[in-house]
Design a protein around this nucleic acid. Sequence first.
DNA 1: AAATATACGTGACATTTATCAAGAACTGAT
DNA 2: ATCAGTTCTTGATAAATGTCACGTATATTT
Lengths: 187, 187
Amino acid sequence: MQHQLRAHIEKIVPLSDEEFDFVRAHFTAKKFKKHQYLIQEGYPVKYHHFVVSGLLKLVYTDDSGKQHIVAFAMEDWWETDFHAYYTQTNATMSLECVEETEVLCLSLDDYRKLCDGLPKMERFFLEKSHWGFIGVQRRIISWLTSSAKERYEQLLAKYPQLVQRVPKSLLAAYLGVSRETLSRLSR
Amino acid sequence: MQHQLRAHIEKIVPLSDEEFDFVRAHFTAKKFKKHQYLIQEGYPVKYHHFVVSGLLKLVYTDDSGKQHIVAFAMEDWWETDFHAYYTQTNATMSLECVEETEVLCLSLDDYRKLCDGLPKMERFFLEKSHWGFIGVQRRIISWLTSSAKERYEQLLAKYPQLVQRVPKSLLAAYLGVSRETLSRLSR
DNA sequence: AAATATACGTGACATTTATCAAGAACTGAT
DNA sequence: ATCAGTTCTTGATAAATGTCACGTATATTT
């Protein structure tokens, strides 16, 4: 499991054994069951999370109580309420288990110590952030250019595993259509 | 004008005079007239751009030839086709002047030299990237939770200057509605 | 096994938005 | 002052999507 984090980081920056030990020491392993919260709206956000196994959803609940899925996170993905994490304010979103999930947690304090102690980790997180930005921007482009049906097909093509693992009502909440409409799209 | 870049960077990391001279040396100033292209779809992306004055639009053109606005960039904003820039591939989007615009250009080579020579600039770009990500994610949330009319009102509230400076047809292409619909929303 | 919750599909109807067409108001160049 | 181009609005209609209501199948819990 530590091995997994190392392989993940080394896709971007190589690490010696000592360096990885240093990295590893900043993370805490945690395990959550289905339906448990890693982050709850209105509460402080302690950690950034690296998903070792399982599946998470980042949920924004609107004024009328309707839930919208901002992101899913599965193996090898990073997830948190970034704004609340960086500014150490209360969460505006929730992070919740769709499946039983193991994560490695990194506090903001440890994040800073890690980057200060090992500058190549700053490079790693910068690269991650770039790709995160590009990914979200592509989702915007998909929205600007495509119908609900096309967006669903793009999702099927890009994350076929995901579609197997989550109920269609969650996919609908991610795509921004009602579950009834999504149901009719497949016909 | 160099002064403006310095003030912008120093909102995040302080710089000595020598350090700023080092930073400044990596940028090239350029000036473009209304309707000129800084980046053209299908061509290499040479630079990341810091906008000194003026207004740019980042445009994605779909298969049917319809134009969609991925982002606007005005004074003190950074803009490029990030994916094409980082991977040094051809642009999938265009970056075009809405007004006459002055920019400071940074090639990928100079970007790397800058970060290597002055690690605090890596911290600066990391912070910029974080906030960029948070901004785009908020646009997604706005889309998931709000109607076209609400999204328009949020835009009016967030960027009142922008609404004065660009034709409504461009705002429509940014919001993802037809210009006719946008016109009817104000009634 | 029974009880309960969740997931999924579908019909009927309302609402939102896109599309096509036309014209008015404004801008800039000559 | 005229002409051409752009911007904005509006009407009529079609298409897409949301909402409400219901039924059924499948898990999950007790």
